[in-house]
Computed example of a mutant assay.
Amino acid sequence: MITVTRLNGQPVTINALLIELVEEAADTVITLTTGNKIVVKEKTAEIVALNQQYLQTIGLVAVAHKKSE
C-alpha cells in the first residue's frame, strides 16, 4: 500500500499492486486495474519511487531482479 495526496489535500492509501497507469498532464491521474481513477498531487516520479519502495518491502523487486539475471 502507498499513500498519496488528493488535490484537496486529503491523504489516500491505495494498493500499489493495482496501479495500471500513471498519467501526468496538469494533474497526475492514477488509473487502477479496477477502472477507478485517482487524481493526486504527486508527480509520476514520486509515485514510481513509492511503488518501488513498497515492492522492495514485500520482496517482489528482489524476485524480479533475480529472474532477469
Rank of each mutant, 00 (worst) to 15 (best):
I2F: 12
I2N: 11
I2K: 08
T3H: 00
V4N: 01
V4G: 04
R6L: 15
R6E: 02
L7T: 13
L7I: 15
L7R: 04
N8Q: 04
N8Y: 02
Q10C: 05
P11N: 05
T13M: 05
I14A: 03
N15S: 10
N15K: 15
L17T: 13
L18P: 10
L21Q: 06
V22C: 10
E24T: 11
E24K: 10
A25R: 12
A26T: 14
D27H: 12
T28Y: 11
V29D: 01
T31L: 05
L32G: 11
L32E: 11
L32M: 12
T33Q: 03
N36H: 09
V40T: 01
V40M: 07
T44M: 05
T44D: 04
A45F: 10
E46P: 02
I47P: 03
I47H: 06
V48S: 11
A49H: 08
L50H: 04
N51E: 07
Q53G: 05
Q53A: 12
Q53R: 10
Q53D: 14
Y54T: 07
L55I: 00
L55R: 15
Q56L: 02
Q56N: 05
T57S: 10
T57L: 03
I58K: 02
L60G: 09
L60V: 14
L60C: 07
L60Y: 12
V61R: 02
V61W: 01
V61Y: 01
A62P: 02
V63S: 09
A64N: 06
K67R: 07
K67T: 13
S68V: 11
S68K: 12
E69H: 08
